[in-house]
Amino acid sequence: MARILLAEDEEALRAFVARALAQDGHVVVATADGAEALDVLTADRDGFDLLLTDIRMPVMDGIALALAAARDRPDLIILLMTGYADQRERASGLDALIHDVIAKPFSLAEIKAAVNEALASKLR
């Protein structure tokens, strides 16, 4: 399936999402913040198919991570997650760079569907 880089500072949610996506056969590399995710992305040689990142995180937020990822890896599909309306508004200016913004809280089925739809869009 796909290689997914996950950036989520909330440990329980990070584990939940990583397990859910692994159940669908994806290889998930989970990181605790944007800076850690950018380090992984920069050092990676195999390539990721998708970046799934929370917007609001310490050290480096998801918007800064998305901008850096889009600059360095223009073919990378980027999905943002947030539970905050103001953060969703911040992401609205990134329509050309990101695939979608997923509202938290989400169900297992919703996150799987959003990821699978984003990955399918690359094939079109």
Rank of each mutant, 00 (worst) to 15 (best):
50 L>G: 03
55 I>C: 03
56 R>A: 03
57 M>P: 06
59 V>A: 06
59 V>G: 00
59 V>L: 06
62 G>V: 12
64 A>W: 02
66 A>I: 03
68 A>L: 01
68 A>R: 08
69 A>K: 00
69 A>P: 00
69 A>L: 04
69 A>Q: 01
70 A>S: 15
71 R>T: 14
73 R>F: 14
73 R>C: 14
74 P>M: 04
74 P>L: 06
75 D>H: 11
76 L>G: 06
76 L>K: 05
76 L>T: 11
78 I>T: 06
79 L>S: 07
79 L>Q: 09
80 L>K: 04
83 G>P: 09
83 G>Q: 03
83 G>K: 01
85 A>S: 13
89 E>N: 09
89 E>F: 12
91 A>S: 13
93 G>S: 11
94 L>M: 14
96 A>E: 11
97 L>N: 10
97 L>I: 10
98 I>M: 05
98 I>T: 04
98 I>G: 00
99 H>W: 13
99 H>I: 10
99 H>F: 15
100 D>M: 03
102 I>P: 04
104 K>Q: 10
104 K>L: 13
104 K>M: 11
105 P>S: 09
105 P>I: 05
110 E>K: 13
111 I>Q: 00
112 K>W: 08
112 K>F: 07
113 A>E: 12
114 A>K: 02
115 V>E: 08
116 N>G: 06
117 E>Y: 02
119 L>Q: 10
